[in-house]
């Protein structure tokens, strides 16, 4: 395949995705004609952005993040408080909420960046829990478990963005732009440096890559996008409470990234579509109660049977195989040795 083929294929895919996002899905939604479906579509897009932002830090840079919901929550609360207390226009609150989340992510990252693997994971878990306890109990500012209501006011250029269709387009445009930025970040020399970090941080360090700085940057950028997602959620849902941003949400986002495949951006987005969409489809069969169980089972099954995820670029276990040349070797009885069940 020559270069122009690749380019034209890339344009074809981009065109298809954009048409799908901006023409076909809204058309289908307007045919279905229920605002509930718009809400689901918005949720899927917001979680796609969350999964994409976690993909940058967990999939590409290889830092296991167990507190992503905290930055999502900072974005959500930041946007809600800026809109209700300071009466800022919603258009201003979205980037500001992202910046707030990025700032907190930066402050969190500075001391924890020298930790590796599970210690980093647990540090992020601890920080996520701290922020959750704070939003739950700092009643004077966050109104505690009651949450914050946002009243309309989503007007810009005489368009009322609290109506379903403009809200859909607003979320779609912002999410598409953010995902494009993440795509360019992770498929560049910069992204390759992050991948080197993921494969072996000591080796990357030895080759002259400034690993703490890269970790810091990717963590901050990921925090920014999570904050934007939080702001979008606050504005489209119109109500936020600490329960929207607890540990289960962090795990849900992690499951999306693992299900789609670590290191693959389309995979993360596909994971978001499946894990938000599937329970909605199953709702028809009265399976709403099983939502979290399904997430647990899916996560477990994927790790065990398909550690590469649906379209992943690395798998935890392939990594071992390549590293030590063990897995693919035929045993003496002619059977292939496999990792996983038996």
């Amino acid at each position: 395949m020559n270069a122009s083929d690749t380019t034209s294929r890339r344009w074809l895919w981009t065109g298809l995705i954009l048409t799908g996002l901006f023409v076909i899905v809204p058309l289908l939604l307007s045919l279905a004609g229920r605002s509930y479906f718009y809400q689901i579509a918005n949720t899927i897009m917001i979680f796609a952005l969350l999964a994409a932002s976690m993909h940058l830090v967990t999939g590409v840079a290889g830092l296991l993040q167990l507190g992503h919901a905290a930055f999502y929550g900072i974005g959500g609360y930041g946007a809600a408080l800026l809109a209700t207390h300071f009466k800022l226009s919603f258009a201003a609150t979205i980037p500001l909420a992202g910046l707030m989340a990025a700032l907190i992510a930066f402050l969190v990252a500075v001391p924890t960046m020298r930790l590796v693997s599970i210690y980093f994971a647990v540090a992020t878990l601890g920080i996520g829990q701290m922020l959750h306890v704070i939003t739950l109990n700092w009643v004077a500012v966050t109104k505690g478990p009651n949450g914050i209501l946002l009243f309309g006011g989503m007007k810009l250029f005489d368009i009322d963005f609290s109506k379903p269709v403009p809200a859909y387009y607003l979320v779609a445009v912002i999410v598409a732009a953010c995902v494009y930025v993440i795509h360019r970040l992770s498929h560049s020399y910069y992204g390759n440096a992050l991948r080197a970090l993921r494969e072996d941080d000591q080796c990357a360090d030895a080759m002259g890559i400034n690993t703490p700085r890269l970790k810091l940057e990717s963590f901050t950028v990921s925090g920014f996008f999570a904050g934007v997602a939080g702001a979008l959620w606050a504005h489209t849902a119109g109500y936020i409470s600490p329960a929207d941003f607890n540990f289960n949400v962090s795990i849900l986002i992690l499951s999306m990234v693992v299900l789609g495949g670590l290191g693959s951006l389309p995979g993360s987005i596909l994971g978001a579509i499946i894990l938000i969409g599937l329970p909605e489809v199953l709702r028809e069969f009265k399976a709403g109660d099983f939502r979290n169980i399904i997430i647990g089972v899916v996560l477990f099954g994927v790790i065990l049977f398909q550690p590469r995820g649906l379209i992943g670029e690395v798998s935890a276990l392939d990594f071992i195989r390549n590293q030590f040349g063990l897995g693919r070797k035929a045993r003496s009885d002619g059977k292939q040795m496999r990792v996983g069940w038996l």
Binding site: L64, I251, L254, G296, V297, I303, L304, A316
Partner: peptide, 15 residues
């Protein structure tokens, strides 16, 4: 890799 895989599998079972 082993640690993170088992961490996630035990997390999944705990859910």
């Amino acid at each position: 890799a082993m640690r993170e895989a088992t961490l996630m599998s035990s997390l999944a079972l705990s859910i």
